[in-house]
């Protein structure tokens, strides 16, 4: 089903996941992830057309809550967690682009 994982694939995935890898790490992860994917290839030989995918172990439906207020957290406690805060808000370094 899949060609063996390439170094570029790992680099791309690391970027998507916001991780930076050294060259040596790229080599190591390419090999290790390739092994897992190779193992996963035992699924690829199966003809599973018509098999329903399962995302949840049990089929529950319509679990909802009433539109009623619950107590929010105290702001001081919330901002005490923040690595950086200013004016009642979480502070971050500049954002390079608009949200997608």
């Amino acid at each position: 089903m899949s060609s063996p994982l390439r170094r570029d694939d790992v680099a791309h995935v690391a970027k998507l996941a916001r991780l930076s890898l050294s060259s040596a790490e790229l080599d190591m992860f390419t090999e290790q992830l390739g092994q897992v994917l190779e193992h996963a290839n035992d699924m690829s030989s199966l003809d599973l057309d018509g098999v329903k995918p399962t995302a949840h172990p049990f089929e529950l439906v319509n679990v909802v809550r009433k539109d009623e207020i619950r107590v929010s957290l105290d702001r001081d406690e919330v901002l005490a967690m923040a690595p950086d805060a200013q004016d009642g808000r979480f502070a971050v370094p500049r954002i390079m682009g608009e949200a997608p």
């Binding site: 207020i69 619950r70 107590v71 929010s72 919330v78 901002l79 004016d87 808000r89 979480f90």
Partner: peptide, 23 residues
């Protein structure tokens, strides 16, 4: 709505920042 989509915090425009927040 009175509250947010997935929690019981107030859905209210114009509150003091980070006061309608929960886990």
């Amino acid at each position: 709505t009175t509250t947010k989509m997935f929690c019981g915090c107030a859905n209210h425009f114009g509150s003091e920042p980070n006061t309608n927040v929960c886990p």
